[in-house]
Design a protein around this nucleic acid. Structure first.
Lengths: 141, 141
DNA sequence: GTGCGTGCAAAGACTTTGCACGTAC
DNA sequence: GTACGTGCAAAGTCTTTGCACGCAC
């Protein structure tokens, strides 16, 4: 995937800005996240790291997920209490998920019109939108 | 609040349909939830029950929240990993929250235009929207 | 060389569950 | 009278943290 290099650069720069270090563990975690197509959980990430032959502890995974979230490389997505999911963000302003309530499947979609709607209501109230998360619960028609 | 009676009736009927019982604890929990204006957490509910002079255990609160959620009297709202919030649903089709990232404050707003947008995109894809949750992250303009 | 980072295991927060007793229907 | 419901405490899950050692800069 050709997004690896830029994301890695973004991460390095973000770390540097905070006086933090770019370590092999952090690199491996980001590499492994990029392999996921959509959503993933901390546990899946840990398994994938093992499958890739990387040895990274759970603590480091959680610590790195927080870092990646704080520099907007990934987004934290919650749609039910039992699952704390993440996904790559690539500078997305927000994201929309279709959650299939019958099957539990989740897909990410684009809903560009929402940005205008969102910004309008925020402006009307004197706020500025920084991002959003939308989950739409669907069944087959 | 004049919504108490109908909600209580809805709950009773839902319980009956499942062969479950309408107990004093369940009644007190629903009564207390109705007093909350917006969002609440399990813990706040427990405190409010105590403040109302009701003696209900944590286990029963959690069990009842699940019941109320399954019959759509309340909605489970998640906007960050640390907080599992609920709110009255009154048959709402979805809900929109403004999350103030600086202060942590959360307010519920109406965004009726979203329903049309949501239903359109679902229909285009051959699904039927059953509900949604939108969180907009804002700062002061 | 100096912090920052890591792994481990223990601690934490929140939620769920097993069990014996109690109660709505 | 018979499930179902409740409280309690213990168990579970997921996540965070303290500590000693190690490594990037």
């Amino acid at each position: 995937m050709e997004i690896i290099a830029p994301l890695c650069a973004v991460f390095r720069r973000a770390l540097k800005e905070e006086g933090l270090k770019y370590t092999p563990e952090r690199a491996r975690i980001l590499d492994t996240i990029i392999e996921f197509d959509g959503l993933f959980e901390a546990d899946q990430l840990l398994d994938a790291l093992k499958a890739n032959g990387y040895q990274v502890s759970k603590a480091t995974v959680y610590r790195t997920l927080k870092l990646l979230e704080s520099c907007s490389i990934i987004q934290h997505v919650l749609f039910d209490r039992d699952q704390s999911h993440y996904q790559l963000a690539f500078g997305k302003q927000g994201n929309t998920l279709l959650v299939h309530v019958d099957t539990g499947e989740v897909e990410t979609i684009e809903l560009p019109e929402l940005i205008a709607l969102r910004d309008a209501i925020c402006q009307k109230r004197g706020f500025k939108a920084q991002g959003h998360k939308l989950q739409i619960f669907v069944t087959d028609a």
